[in-house]
């Protein structure tokens, strides 16, 4: 699955990267990302997730070809 992160998350992760591991759902993805960068745990707790440009909940079942956006709290305007 392809991951894209935004804003402050770019201080922790590459802007775009691929995960080869099988991850069941968004909760598992979140845990995976925290394992990779424990210092991002706080901000990840406030993030929403979108799959293929649609917001999804933590129980969304991930598929291998999903394109996932990790969305920190908004700060537009």
């Amino acid at each position: 699955m392809k991951i894209e992160v935004f804003a402050v998350l770019k201080d922790f992760y590459d802007k775009q990267f691929t995960i080869g591991e099988t991850l069941k759902d968004i909760s598992e993805l979140k845990r995976y990302l925290i394992t990779q960068k424990p210092e991002a745990e706080g901000i990840l707790g406030a993030c929403r997730f979108a799959v293929n440009d649609e917001l999804v909940g933590s129980h969304y079942n991930l598929k291998a070809d999903d394109r996932i956006s990790v969305i920190p709290p908004s700060s537009g305007g």
């Binding site: 707790g45 709290p73 305007g77």
Partner: peptide, 28 residues
């Protein structure tokens, strides 16, 4: 728009520092 829409600002200051904006801290 400010709270929900996935748009982010990074503030660049004249002292050379920068900070990603946190308009929406509601989750806290």
């Amino acid at each position: 728009l400010k709270h929900e829409v996935p748009i982010w600002k990074c503030e660049y200051f004249t002292d050379g520092t920068h900070k990603w904006g946190g308009n929406c801290n509601c989750a806290e």
